[in-house]
Design a binder for these strands. Structure first.
Lengths: 171, 171
DNA sequence: GGTGAAAGAGGGCCTAG
DNA sequence: CTAGGCCCTCTTTCACC
């Protein structure tokens, strides 16, 4: 019941709908900007902010979720505050004959607790992982056990992250 | 007032506190996992989920925000649904004599509406940008106008993103 | 598309155990 | 930390513009 709601929120992020170009007016854009900055703003405060009635605002937000513009609401957790003091970007290239297995491989790697983001690429590298680890040993064992030991992996390149910043707003 | 709360949420993400290793028990971890999956779960539902009283849960969440474990709550907006159908990772390397200007440069680039994430790196590249653009022309003009035209930028490498997945949970 | 009213639910803050 | 209660705000639905 409660579990179900949080589980579905995760699943939604995993299975993106093919939403192409939803019509948005200026009010929608301001709603999205506000929710991008603070997902926990109350509906009434949001309504005041964008200048519409609370009930209208509520309907707008629900519609934006239904059509897939809003994929979910997530807490931003500081990795270093929970003991993951080391962050890195890992570029991974696969053997050319392993490209067909990429989907399954990514789904597996996505489940590792160290993995924060997976970017599946067209280019020299097949994907980039954003990972957070307790320390250098933890990072090394992640790379060795999940990547280097896999015969489908042709190579990896790890770069430490000094700082990670979110963009201001996509609108 | 309302503006202030959303503004401060952004600023918090910009100026990370040096929070190192906060003590967390198992209840805290479950709270964080739930809020990571669904930031809009109600306090009472969250309390039931982790098995504590609502008032206790409320205090826990507030404490996790105050000490910086939770940096904020953000809506996850699908770029393709708002007309940004093209996503890319751009690796950027700077001229070696420009390294001192990196902070200002990043702060500038972070404000571009196309920029979703900035990863400031130690390694061959100085940083990686995750950007979303309307189309190839928009992407090209972003790279040309913001990166290639800057004499501090030594080189860039752009890779299209096929798919972007969030990690399951950092805990 | 938009509004405002109204009922119910939930948040936030107590105090006592 | 829990339990219970209280007040008040917010959510959510509804009929209506």
């Amino acid at each position: 019941m409660v579990i179900k709601s949080s589980t579905s929120a995760v699943d939604r992020a995993v299975a993106p709908k093919n939403v192409r170009a939803v019509d948005l007016d200026d009010v929608d854009r301001r709603i999205l900007t506000a929710l991008h900055a603070d997902a926990r703003i109350s509906n009434s405060a949001l309504a005041d902010l964008v200048g519409i009635a609370a009930s209208t605002c509520h309907g707008r937000v629900r519609r934006l979720q239904e059509v897939g513009v809003i994929r979910g609401f997530h807490a931003d957790i500081d990795p270093s505050a929970i003991g993951l003091s080391l962050q890195a970007m890992i570029s991974v290239s696969l053997q050319s004959n392993a490209r067909g297995k990429i989907e399954g491989f990514i789904e597996h790697i996505r489940r590792r607790p160290q993995v924060m983001e997976v970017y599946f690429l067209a280019g020299a590298d097949d994907f980039i992982l954003h990972v957070a680890a307790r320390d250098t040993d933890d990072l090394r064992s992640f790379v060795v056990q999940n990547l280097n030991s896999d015969s489908d992996v042709a190579g990896t390149q790890t770069s430490l992250i000094f700082e990670h910043l979110r963009g201001a707003s996509p609108l």
